[in-house]
Simulated scan of single mutants.
Amino acid sequence: MAAKQAMASVLAFEKKLVPSDGYLYGTQWDNRENCTPLKLQEKSVRGTISNRLKAAVQNDPAKLNAEVDKPNLQTVDSCALGPDQDTLKLHFTLKVLGGVSQPSACNHAGFKQSYEQAAKGYISREGFQELARRYALNLANARFLWRNRVGAENIDVQVSALNKGAEQTWNFNALDFSVRDFDQGEDNPALAALADRIAHALSSDNEFLMLDIVCHVQAGRAQEVYPSEELVLDKGKGKKSKILYCVNAMAAMHSQKLGNALRTIDTWYPEFDDIEQSAGPIAVEPYGAVTSLGKAFRTPAKKMDFYTFFDSWARGNSLSSVEDEHYVMAVLVRGGVFGQSDK
């Protein structure tokens, strides 16, 4: 066991779930072979003033009318299916890597040894079965569609293993699976087989699994679809107020957004069972950060954050529950730089 004060100042782990960007196509539900890449369209629109106004303006009808009369001109990107298309096709690949027990960088031999013992102990006991099942569920339920999942009439997901000599394909009806419940799918042989392949790759020292994911979403003829939105750092000088992501003029989703959906498996944080406080499953993060809610669900003050668990567990101490170990290993699968400053 490493000494209590022995913590690596340089400590990094490479991510083990590596998605590509996702590419968007338009097609017809009954004729999926005939698909075309979706392009972005630019719109110039005149909106109304709808933001909160100062009290002096709110309470003065004349000032309010003058403010409302101002044109709110915007140029935005949009993306939609063609007039003869009713189905969105999303295509991306996912590489699952092994080697979690080996940091990509660690400058303390004693700490590295104690961490490797802890990681190999987890792998021998749990074999990544629980994490793999949750990752597989997030593929099967098409969580990676984000807003495109809402209001869809049908969603089919095809997951194919491309490893030479071990090719395999699984098909799922995404609407058969909830995005809020991981206690499901235990009687689904396709889901179990996919989870086993993911678990085997994660548990290995240097093997990998290459998955190809094709998802069809019956969204409605000519309906708007939602690629990733680019971050506009300087809205005052930019020509557009909304810029969507594209690759070679083709609408796409960021690999980071797909990865965030796949690692949205944390149901072990303290507020999950509290109906009023729960945000449902959240993405695995060191502090349980959910930026859309402006909240961290795993705070060091409550000793539920990654670093509190990891610093103890990696030195050879046991955690209070296997769920805490699942969480720690899920953060390591996510990857990151976790060294402690020696200043």
Rank of each mutant, 00 (worst) to 15 (best):
A3T: 03
A3D: 12
S9T: 11
A12Q: 05
F13R: 11
L17H: 00
D21K: 15
T27P: 01
D30E: 14
E33S: 12
N34T: 15
C35Q: 14
K39I: 02
R46N: 11
G47Y: 14
N51K: 12
L53M: 12
A56F: 03
D60I: 04
D60W: 03
A66N: 11
A66R: 09
E67L: 06
P71M: 12
N72Q: 04
L73H: 03
Q74K: 13
V76S: 04
S78F: 06
S78W: 04
C79S: 08
G82K: 14
Q85L: 00
Q85C: 00
D86H: 08
L88K: 13
L90N: 08
H91M: 07
V96I: 10
V96N: 04
G99L: 08
S101Q: 14
S104Y: 00
N107F: 00
F111K: 04
F111D: 02
K112R: 14
K112M: 11
Y115T: 07
Y115I: 07
A118W: 04
S124P: 00
E126A: 10
G127W: 07
Y135T: 12
L137W: 03
F144R: 12
W146L: 13
R147S: 13
N148I: 08
V157G: 06
A161I: 07
K164F: 04
G165Q: 10
A166R: 15
T169M: 10
N171G: 09
D176Q: 10
A195C: 06
D196I: 01
R197K: 15
I198M: 07
L202H: 06
D205I: 01
L209W: 04
M210H: 13
L211H: 09
C215W: 05
V217T: 15
V217R: 05
A219F: 05
A219M: 08
G220E: 05
R221P: 00
R221F: 04
R221N: 11
A222H: 14
Q223A: 12
V225T: 14
Y226H: 15
S228V: 13
E229I: 05
L231T: 11
D234M: 02
A249K: 15
A251M: 03
H254M: 02
S255V: 01
S255I: 00
L258F: 00
G259R: 06
G259T: 01
G259P: 02
A261R: 08
T264Y: 03
Y269S: 08
Q277D: 02
Q277T: 01
G280K: 13
Y287L: 11
L293D: 04
A301F: 08
A301G: 01
F306A: 02
F310C: 04
D311T: 06
R315I: 05
G316P: 09
L319G: 10
S321M: 07
E323K: 13
D324K: 14
E325D: 11
M329P: 01
M329N: 09
A330R: 14
A330T: 07
V331H: 06
L332V: 09
V337F: 03
Q340V: 11
K343S: 15
